[in-house]
Design a binder for these strands. Structure first.
Lengths: 250, 250
DNA sequence: CGCTTTTTTGAGCTCGGTCAATATAAGTGG
DNA sequence: CCACTTATATTGACCGAGCTCAAAAAAGCG
C-alpha cells in the first residue's frame, strides 16, 4: 500500500468534510491514492490505536519504534522514573498533543506514556513525517513551531517547580488545566489523574496536594466533583498562584 | 549581498580547512558566492557578535528578531522572571549551544539571555535556516534532533528540580557541569555563574547552595578555585546525587 | 586602601514531608 | 443490590530540611 502525503493548511482543512474536526491545528497527514479521484479517506481512517485507561503506549527503555503519536481523544501521562523509585510525571497530555518528540534522537525511550482514560491515538511514522517535511516547506516550519512550543511548555513547567509554596504550585496547576480545557464548558476542567500523579508532577506529596485542595475548597475558591473541578472564585486562585500566602490549616 | 547556503555534513566539514574547528556538530551554515570558485569564507567570518560579561543578547519581552544564535565561545545564562520578583534560570549554555529555539513560535521573547563571561555568538537568521532546511532533507532531520535534545534536556532539568534534597540537587548540578565540560582537562569544570544564579537554577537559596558546597568541601569530595572546581572523590558525589543522605552541618 | 558586592556561616522558625489513622471511592462476587 | 475487599483520598500529629533574617568574611573594583 503506497501512501501519498499532502499538507493540509488550516484554511484548506476547513474545506475538507472529514478533516474539519481534525485535532491537528497545523499539520494534517492525509492519505490519498496518487492521482485518483476516489473519495478521500478521512483522517480518522489512518492508523489509529485504541487504549483503555492504564494501558501503556510505550514504556521507559523501550526501543524507539520510529514513530510519533497524536492524541485524538482521551488523556495520557508522560513519566519517567526518579532515582528514589517514585515516578516523575513530565506532563499530562490531551487531545491534539503529540507524543514522542523528545525521542527523535534517541535509541531508547527515556519516558513512558500511559493512558489515564480510554484513548484514541494516531500513529505517524517518521518516514511519513520526513517525506512531508521535505516536500512542504511550510510544514517544516510548522513542525519547528510544534517543537518550539514543547520547549516553551517545559520551561514553564520548570518555572512552576521552582515556585516556593505548595499551594502556589497547586493553584497554578488548576489554572493551567482550566485554560487547556475546552473553555466552552463554563470554566470546568477534568482531573483524570490521581493525587499521586499530581504530586509527582508538582514535586510534592499526595498528602500535601490533598491539603492544598482542601484548603482551597474550604474557602470556596474551588469546587470539585469526582473527576472534574471548577473555580468559583478564579481571581482569588490566581492571586494564590501569583504567590499570595495561604495557611493550609483552618 | 546574496547568500547561498550549503549543508556541510560532519564528513565534509572535516575536509574544509576553516570549518574544521566549527563548534556546530550537525549543521554548518556556509556562505559562498553562487557559482564562484572564490575561496570559501570561513564560518568565523559569518555575522558574529561579541559580548562582554553581563551584556544581554536579548531580554524578556523583546520582540523576536527572527534569528537564532549559536554560542561559539563563553557562557550564557537563559532566564525568566519569577512571579515573586526573583529570576528563574532556565539553563546555562556553553560553546556549541543554540539560543532562541524556544521562541520560534512567539512574537515576544519570554526568556532573556545574558553573557556570564565574554562571549562570541554567531547569528543565524530564520530565513537562512529555513532555506537550508528546505533544500537539505538531512539538515531538517538534524535540526529536529537538535530540538528533540533540547526537550530531553529540559525534562532532565525538571526531574532534578523534583529531587527532594538540596545536596542532591547541588551534586547533580556539579556532575552535570563536569560531563558538559571539555573532559580533557582532568575532570575540572568552570563555574562562571554566581551562587544566586545556581540557586535560581536549582530552586534553592544562595545560602543553601553555599552550605551544600561547604558540606562537600569539608568532606574532601569537592575542591574549588575562584571560578572552577574539581571532584577529588567523584564516586562519593555520585552517591549523593543518587540520594545518599548528607548532613549539612558538621 | 576604602568601598561595594558576593559568599559564607549562624540561629530560629515554618512549611511541607513522614507516618499513620480514617474515610471515601471503586471494584468483586454472591 | 448489598456485603466484602481493595485502592485511593483526606486529615491529624510530629519533626526535620531548608528558608529567613542577619552578621561576619572574602572577593572585586576604582
Amino acid at each position: 500500500m503506497s501512501h501519498h502525503l499532502r499538507l493540509v493548511t488550516p484554511e484548506l482543512a476547513a474545506t475538507l468534510r472529514r478533516c474539519q474536526d481534525c485535532p491537528l491545528s497545523r499539520l494534517c497527514l492525509d492519505e490519498a491514492p496518487p492521482g485518483a479521484a476516489a473519495p478521500l479517506p478521512s483522517c480518522d481512517e489512518q492508523r489509529c490505536v485504541h487504549l483503555d485507561g492504564g494501558q501503556h503506549l510505550f514504556r521507559v527503555s523501550d526501543a524507539v519504534d520510529q514513530q510519533l503519536h497524536i492524541i485524538r481523544s482521551g488523556d495520557v501521562k508522560l513519566y519517567q522514573h526518579g532515582r528514589d523509585g517514585g515516578q516523575h510525571i513530565i506532563e499530562f497530555l490531551g487531545p491534539g498533543a503529540w507524543l514522542g518528540l523528545e525521542s527523535l534522537n534517541e535509541q531508547q525511550r527515556h519516558a513512558g506514556a500511559v493512558a489515564l482514560t480510554p484513548c484514541d491515538v494516531t500513529t505517524v511514522p517518521y518516514s511519513m513525517l520526513t517525506t512531508l517535511l521535505d516536500r512542504q516547506p511550510r510544514s517544516a516550519e510548522a513542525f519547528g513551531q510544534l517543537l518550539s512550543d514543547t520547549i516553551a511548555r517545559h520551561q514553564q513547567h520548570a518555572a512552576m517547580l521552582r515556585s516556593t509554596s505548595a499551594v502556589q504550585r497547586v493553584a497554578q496547576f488548576l489554572l493551567h488545566r482550566l485554560e487547556q480545557a475546552p473553555h466552552g464548558t463554563a470554566a470546568r476542567a477534568s482531573l483524570p489523574m490521581s493525587r499521586q500523579d499530581i504530586a509527582d508532577y508538582l514535586g510534592l506529596t499526595s498528602s500535601t496536594v490533598s491539603r492544598c485542595l482542601s484548603a482551597l475548597r474550604r474557602r470556596g475558591w474551588l469546587s470539585m466533583g469526582q473527576r472534574a473541578f471548577s473555580l468559583p472564585d478564579q481571581p482569588a486562585v490566581q492571586q494564590v498562584a501569583a504567590g499570595m500566602p495561604l495557611a493550609l490549616d483552618d
